[in-house]
Amino acid sequence: MEALKQELKEKIVTTLNLEDIAIEDIADNDPLFGDGLGLDSIDALELIVILDKDYGIKLVDPKEGKSIFQSIETMAAYIEANRTK
């Protein structure tokens, strides 16, 4: 689980071009949207693609995204429970 969280942080920083944010600056429970990392709706689409491409998870209900993408912690837990690759 810790390795997955680290992997997610690296993917988010690289894929979303978060130039000013170091991986160690992201706490597991930091909000990804709003006051935390400040991600936006385009980033949400990028995260959905990461779930699909890298972990084989297709989000059928977009409303699920709100709880899944709350933080690295929630994202990792969801991936751990639902990954197909």
Partner: peptide
């Protein structure tokens, strides 16, 4: 690379 799947919006924009 992704066989016409997994297209992200950023580079398209």
């Amino acid at each position: 690379d992704n066989n016409e799947e997994f297209l992200t919006p950023t580079s398209f924009i």
